[in-house]
C-alpha cells in the first residue's frame, strides 16, 4: 500500500472514531511505515482531543424564555404570516397589475403640459360669434345700399387692376408643329 492511500484511509478511520483499521493491508503498512504510523497517531490524538472543547449548560429558564418569546412574536405575526403563506407571489402580481392600470388611467386623463390643450367648444363659440357679426354687418350694409357699392367697387377695382397688367407677348408656334413641351 502506498503512503498516500494509507493516509487517506487513516483519515477515514479517525473520522469513524476507530482505534485500529479493519483493513489488514493498512495494518501491515502502519506496522512497517513509521511516518504513516506517526501520522495516524497524531490524527487520532487530535480527533480525541477535540472532545475537550468546553461544553456549556444553557440557563435553566432558557426554554421558558424562548417559549414566551415565541408566544409574543408568534401571535403578533401569525395572521400576517398565514396570509403571506397563502397569497405569496399571487398578491404581489395582482397588486402590480392594479398599480399599472391606475397609472395608465391617470396618464390618459391628464395630458402632458407640453401638448397645448385645445378647447374646441370655445373655438366653436367664437366662430359662431364671428359669423353672427359678419351676417349682421352684411345685413346692415344691405339695408343702407352699401353692399351694392361694395360689390361694384370690388368689380371696378378688379377691372382696373387687370387693365394695368403688362401685356404678355404672343407665343410663337413651334417649328415642328408641336407645342413648347
Amino acid at each position: 500500500m502506498r503512503c498516500a492511500d494509507a493516509r487517506a484511509a487513516i483519515e477515514e478511520i479517525v473520522d469513524a472514531n476507530r482505534e485500529t483499521s479493519p483493513d489488514p493491508a493498512l495494518r501491515d503498512h502502519l506496522n512497517s511505515c513509521n511516518s504513516c504510523a506517526e501520522y495516524f497517531s497524531q490524527f487520532h490524538r487530535i480527533w480525541q482531543a477535540l472532545s475537550a472543547y468546553p461544553s456549556v449548560e444553557p440557563s435553566p429558564n432558557l426554554i421558558l424564555r424562548t417559549k414566551s418569546r415565541l408566544q409574543r412574536n408568534g401571535s403578533r405575526t401569525d395572521s400576517r404570516f398565514s396570509w403571506h403563506v397563502v397569497a405569496g407571489w399571487q398578491w404581489m402580481t395582482v397588486s402590480a397589475c392594479i398599480m399599472i392600470l391606475c397609472a395608465v388611467l391617470f396618464l390618459s386623463q391628464h395630458t402632458s403640459p407640453l401638448v397645448p390643450q385645445i378647447d374646441t367648444a370655445q373655438i366653436d363659440a367664437a366662430d359662431d360669434k364671428l359669423l353672427q357679426d359678419i351676417e349682421q354687418s352684411l345685413s346692415q350694409l344691405e339695408e343702407n345700399g352699401s353692399l351694392a357699392d361694395y360689390d361694384s367697387w370690388s368689380g371696378a377695382y378688379l377691372e382696373t387692376a387687370i387693365q394695368e397688367l403688362p401685356q404678355a407677348p404672343a407665343s410663337k408656334p413651334a417649328q415642328n408643329g408641336r407645342g413648347p413641351l
Binding site: 432558557l62 415565541l70 412574536n73 408568534g74
Partner: peptide, 15 residues
C-alpha cells in the same frame, strides 16, 4: 450570546 442566538433560531423555525 449563544443563548440569545439559539432563541432567534427557534423563533425563525417557528415562524
Amino acid at each position: 450570546e449563544a443563548e440569545e442566538l439559539a432563541q432567534e433560531v427557534f423563533l425563525k423555525i417557528y415562524m
